[in-house]
């Protein structure tokens, strides 16, 4: 959550559920986010994982991270 808020302080990540579909996060945000998440959680997010379902909400991102940590 901290990473998200730092990336885009103007977005309400607690409640948004269509971050990608509504175009709130653009491709530049996504790449920056991937870099941060990779480092913070020691994972490797691949272009395959970049589907809207994985990034539409903070919860979806958390699910992706947990999945990749396994």
């Amino acid at each position: 959550m901290e990473i998200l808020n730092e990336l885009r302080p103007d977005v309400d990540f607690e409640n948004e559920t269509a971050l990608i579909e509504d175009g709130i996060l653009d491709s530049f945000d996504i790449v920056a986010l991937v870099g941060e998440l990779n480092d913070a959680f020691d994972i490797e997010i691949k272009p395959n994982d970049l589907v809207p379902e994985n990034f539409n909400s903070a919860k979806a991102m958390m699910n992706l991270i947990e999945q990749l940590q396994d």
């Binding site: 491709s27 996504i30 790449v31 991937v34 870099g35 990779n38 997010i45 272009p47 970049l50």
Partner: peptide, 20 residues
């Protein structure tokens, strides 16, 4: 272009490491 060129490029280790 975004899915098949931009993301693979920008997320390649070369680009992410440059950032680091």
């Amino acid at each position: 272009f975004k899915n098949y060129l931009f993301y693979p490029l920008a997320m390649s280790s070369l680009f992410l490491n440059t950032s680091k």
